[in-house]
């Protein structure tokens, strides 16, 4: 059984309001990916993770805990859990991924750093000020909580003199590019996905790839932000044969991830349907969103292989 919807939303909203993220990560965990990269502090162009990739292993841990609690006598104490969570960060105890699990997701921003450098892009990072965008609060309709948080993110951009941000995942991209301008006064940050930046640069691959890969478009990239051609251009130029599944491009089929925090069983059922479409196209598939990656690869088990697009691109363009 799913946990009470209002209490789960309450815990996530309280975390964002009190601890700057729906699932608070320590600064050490959130910035682990920056180690050894010699990234510049400050500057007007920033690579911005919005903590999305770093959060995924923690969200996975929380969802597993939710499923266990939902099927146990503890479910009826979720409301009490929300009250306790305001004082003690209980979500931190519920999700404790291993270093190996975290490293899988940390690898994506590392790949993007190497790709942007190879493309000759000058950029820095915000390190501990690289805050979560508030995407989940927005999706869940917690608009007042989101507004307070978005003002905090905007204040960081102002304080650090940021003019342009280069994003990695679709959710952070749409929040910073399409939602913030509607809710924040004087917000004029230029926001570009790294896929758009790389496609525009027209880089030549240093190593040609081969093989068929089923492409899974992110709903947010394809239908919210119109990013459909860029990943295809980059993969095709690298020698990858792209196989489109039954639903593709602007008609892509959602991975189910957006409802995972409230209704994990529904999310899993939807992911299974999408995996069947992708598997019919090719045994290997590429994703461009951490939520898509985790939901689809969990549903697929060992029946097919998923890679984040940054992995293919780094291999081809920045190896």
């Amino acid at each position: 059984m799913p946990l009470p919807t209002g209490d789960v939303i309450g815990i996530l909203a309280d975390n964002l309001r009190l601890r700057r993220s729906v699932l608070p990560l320590s600064a050490k965990v959130a910035t682990k990916w920056t180690e050894g990269l010699g990234l510049r502090h400050g500057g007007d162009t920033m690579l911005y993770t919005g903590m999305m990739y770093q959060l995924i292993p923690y969200i996975e841990g929380l969802v597993k805990a939710e499923i266990k609690f939902g099927d146990s006598w503890l479910a009826k104490y979720t409301g009490l859990g929300r009250k306790v969570n305001r004082v003690v960060n209980i979500s931190a105890f519920m999700a404790r991924p291993s270093a190996a699990e975290r490293a899988v997701y940390d690898q994506v921003p590392i790949n993007v750093v190497h790709l942007l450098r190879k493309a000759g892009v000058e950029f820095g990072a915000l390190f501990e000020d690289d805050l979560y965008s508030g995407a989940l609060a927005y999706d869940l309709g917690a608009d007042e909580v989101l507004l307070e948080h978005a003002r905090r993110v905007h204040a960081v951009f102002r304080k650090r003199g940021v003019k342009t941000v280069i994003t990695i995942d679709p959710h952070t991209t749409t929040m910073l590019r399409s939602v913030y301008p509607k809710i924040l006064e004087g917000y004029d940050i230029e926001v570009r996905s790294y896929l758009e930046v790389l496609a525009e640069k027209g880089m030549a691959p240093s190593m040609m790839l081969s093989g068929d890969v089923a492409i899974h478009d992110s709903c947010v990239f394809a239908r919210y932000e119109g990013i459909v051609d860029e990943p295809r251009e980059l993969l095709a130029a690298a020698g990858v044969t792209i196989r489109d599944p039954e639903n593709t491009g602007r008609q892509t089929w959602c991975c189910g991830g957006p409802v995972e925090s409230l209704y994990p069983a529904k999310a899993a059922a939807n992911a299974e349907k999408r995996v069947a479409q992708l598997r019919a196209a090719a045994p290997d598939a590429v994703t461009m969103c951490p939520m898509c990656f985790v939901n689809l690869s969990s549903a697929a088990g060992d029946t097919m292989r998923f890679k984040d697009i940054s992995q293919y691109l780094r291999e081809a363009y920045a190896s």
């Binding site: 919807t5 209002g6 939303i9 999706d139 869940l140 709903c219 239908r223 919210y224 602007r250 008609q251 892509t252 089929w253 959602c254 189910g256 957006p258 409802v259 409230l262 209704y263 529904k266 939807n270």
Partner: peptide
Amino acid sequence: EVEPVFSCLLCKMCEE
């Protein structure tokens, strides 16, 4: 209609 409202994926397949 809490569960139907919060079961929406906001994927915009319908809107498209």
